[in-house]
Write a protein that binds this DNA or RNA. Structure first.
Length: 109
DNA sequence: TCACTGACTTGGC
DNA sequence: CGCCAAGCCAGTG
């Protein structure tokens, strides 16, 4: 990858997230081998703003809360994007998050 | 070169 | 049930 392995892997994993599914920073971080490195995943997403094909709106925190929605324009853009894929959002939170959750380490392996 | 911050997570009080 | 502190990696000042 052009970027560091961490960033490159994050982009690739997020890009592999199927429509109608969501993943978490911790899941990606754990997949990369750094569970506590979840913060870095968020940082990668920040960089991912300039990366096409990286649906950062499908990445939420472990509570299913749209923590990064503030970075999508400050409005409910992230929520609408997820709803457009069939994911229901309630109170900035993913409904049936556990059912929509997509674990890279479990689905890809 | 050193120090701080950041879209997180977990555990402890 | 809610708040505080620690750990992770990379980027910026």
């Amino acid at each position: 990858m052009a970027q560091s392995d961490f960033f490159g892997n994050v982009y690739e994993v997020v890009r592999l997230v199927p429509p109608g599914r969501v993943t978490t920073y911790g899941a990606i971080a754990a997949y990369l081998g750094s569970q506590r490195g979840a913060r870095m995943v968020g940082w990668a997403m920040n960089n991912a703003h300039g990366q096409p094909g990286v649906p950062a709106h499908r990445v939420v925190n472990r509570n299913g809360l749209l923590t990064g929605k503030n970075f999508f324009g400050g409005g409910s853009v992230m929520q609408e994007l997820l709803e457009a894929e069939g994911i229901k959002i309630k109170d900035d939170q993913v409904v049936a998050f556990r059912e929509c959750f997509w674990d890279p380490g479990a689905e890809l392996l």
